[in-house]
Amino acid sequence: MNPQTPAPTRLRARGVHLGYGEHTVVDGVDLDVPTGRVTVIVGANGSGKSTLLRGLGRLMRPTRGSVELDGVDLYRRPPREVARVLGLLPQHPIAPEGITVAALVARGRHPHRGAFRRWDSTDADAVATALARTDLAELADRRVEELSGGQRQRVWVAMALAQEPELLLLDEPTTYLDLAHQVDLLDLLAELNAERGTTVVMVLHELALAARYADHLVVLHRGRVLRAGPPGEVLDAACLAEAFGLEARVLEDPVSGTPLVVPIGRRRVRIGSPY
């Protein structure tokens, strides 16, 4: 993917409002998700990141505005058809007690199977590929509850891969993972994006990783889009101050050249430093 060409959009939010009861969380968001790129949504706690993702993934119906996939309102298309194109991994999925890795990953094939269509080699291939990609082939017969947190998270990602979506939405996929596993997982998603052209949209907390892996960074503040664009243009001290109420310096990441956020707390500020 050449970052210079303007990206077309398949998933697009138009004036989306989302809320729980009277309480509005997402307050009129317009968002064009660039196809074939990695979009990362960041923002302070309570800024509406997860809610926006749920709206984009058809888990929540906008109270106003609409989310369109290929120009058609998500709610005007059969959910199974949407699920073949658009996958979503929510924050707290439930693994049924006693289920094996292979059986759980196989559930990802649900949208591709009719009520009476049998399991066939396409399904088996998709599951095998998903297991191999996530390094889980060896663990296929293990029970999910026996796995470590990092492995378990990979199982869920594998399930989403078995779904073979063209757009994949993930809500904080790196929670509970140590730094090495976080990087592993994000690398996996980046590869998926590069090799298959899968459009990835995810909510992340860790700003350095967000900046490194995002082609397109969206900063939410109080339910609205504060900034959106390439991380290098979006992340600056002013943006951080407004979105997070955080005083910080933005340096260049010596590894990737992307922005690196260094917060200025109250502790351990070097003597003689201007802070």
Partner: peptide, 15 residues
């Protein structure tokens, strides 16, 4: 089978 994974995952699978 899908509902056993929670309402959210089931919905994401197109149920």
């Amino acid at each position: 089978d899908a509902l056993a994974l929670g309402d959210d995952v089931a919905a994401a699978l197109g149920v």
